[in-house]
Amino acid sequence: MPDAPLENLYLRTSSESQARADKVLPNVGSEDASHILGDWKPDSEPKDYDRDEYLPEPAVEWGIDVEFPANKSIDAKRLASQFGETFREKFGSCSLYGRDSQSGFWTFLVSADGPEEVTGLKIAYDYNQTWKPDFRPAFESEYEARLSAVAELAVEYIGDCNTTPSKSPAEAAKHAKTLTGLSEKYDRTAAIHLVAEKGKHFEGRDIWDVMQCLGLQWGDMDCFHWVNEGGAGDDYFFSVETSTPPGYFLPEQIAAGQLQTGDLIFICSVPRTCQPVEVIRRMDKAVRYCQRRLGGSVHYTLGESELLMPVLLENVEQIASDLAELGFEPGTGPALRMF
């Protein structure tokens, strides 16, 4: 039915989504404003999608290293079975890593293309799990119990092993406690709101055009994104959504003239973004471009607090500095794991 543009929508791959948008809307803006954001990448190590080794992350995981006897190799699946449901119910959920007997590289003990036999083992426990509101950091006695249990299993199923923790149980419990509340304190979202004038709104087709002009990509969650092309940090430098229901931008609605919003919200996760101050500066330039094209007023927030732009940048810079001092520099592996 022509009056029901949202009928028959379903989950699609990124390429399918882009093809779907291309069918109903232009994929090139009315002008090229991509210079506003520029061809910028953070001054940090890029993501390594093709790395050879996978190991526990010391900033967020307590590890137990099990050193096998010389020339000893163990079937990976058989070894993993010793750390199954019963073990995890008693000592907590853990991640397992093995050193591939063929390549010599560390990787996940069990995975689709994992090793058949391993010559070393590492067990890792999260110090904290910020995604679980009822999570409690382990006590020293619990770390001691984990270490003893792993040592006993190692002797029984592997042989005469050296079992070494990354931190002593006392140090691990202390470190876990320091991470408690870290998410509540530092997991902040910086946002720049472009709000339509009272009694007015932004038309869907105009929104689509300015986003195309800036070089933003429509896709994930039906929102617009400044894509991080292989740089360090999160997949997107920032995203654009709206508080007007449904909160996102469906091409079919825009093409049918059925989408008008009261605002555009440009958002950026401070801990998950490399060089968040620079990203927010560029995000502000993008918002100012949209304001020139669409009108409206600009407002800055950090979490629930509305701030002036200089104060926002000052606060973000302080958060980034604090996190770096704690070992969670924004956009790095530890920060992405923690937040």
Score class of each variant (00 low, 15 high):
42 P>F: 03
233 G>W: 00
45 E>I: 08
155 V>C: 03
279 V>Y: 00
95 S>Q: 07
323 L>S: 00
235 D>V: 13
272 R>K: 15
10 Y>E: 11
80 A>Y: 02
70 A>G: 01
222 D>A: 15
90 K>P: 03
249 F>P: 04
99 R>P: 01
65 D>C: 06
200 K>L: 10
336 L>F: 00
16 E>G: 10
36 I>T: 08
245 P>S: 12
331 G>S: 03
27 N>T: 15
178 T>N: 01
46 P>C: 13
46 P>H: 11
182 L>A: 11
273 T>L: 05
98 G>C: 11
66 V>E: 04
296 G>D: 09
138 A>N: 11
332 T>Q: 06
270 V>M: 02
121 L>M: 03
91 F>I: 09
259 L>M: 14
238 F>Q: 06
92 G>N: 07
213 C>F: 02
102 Q>D: 14
117 E>L: 02
168 S>M: 06
121 L>G: 05
159 G>S: 11
247 G>H: 04
268 C>G: 06
292 R>Q: 14
283 M>P: 01
180 T>H: 01
86 T>Y: 00
247 G>V: 09
34 S>D: 04
232 A>D: 08
199 G>I: 12
260 Q>C: 09
284 D>W: 03
323 L>D: 00
12 R>K: 11
92 G>Q: 03
319 I>Q: 02
77 K>Y: 06
169 P>F: 05
240 V>N: 05
162 N>C: 08
286 A>T: 13
177 K>D: 09
177 K>C: 04
163 T>C: 12
337 R>C: 11
80 A>S: 13
109 L>H: 07
314 E>G: 08
13 T>R: 10
302 L>Q: 06
72 K>C: 06
200 K>I: 08
77 K>T: 14
213 C>W: 03
306 E>Y: 03
150 V>Y: 00
196 A>V: 12
246 P>R: 09
330 P>L: 06
293 R>T: 10
256 A>Q: 08
208 W>K: 12
253 Q>M: 15
35 H>T: 15
22 D>Q: 15
295 G>K: 04
325 E>D: 12
83 F>I: 07
195 V>N: 03
216 L>H: 07
99 R>M: 11
45 E>T: 15
29 G>C: 10
57 E>Q: 14
256 A>T: 11
221 M>V: 13
185 K>G: 02
174 K>Q: 12
223 C>R: 12
16 E>I: 09
254 I>W: 00
305 S>E: 15
248 Y>E: 12
230 G>L: 11
190 A>D: 01
71 N>E: 10
234 D>W: 01
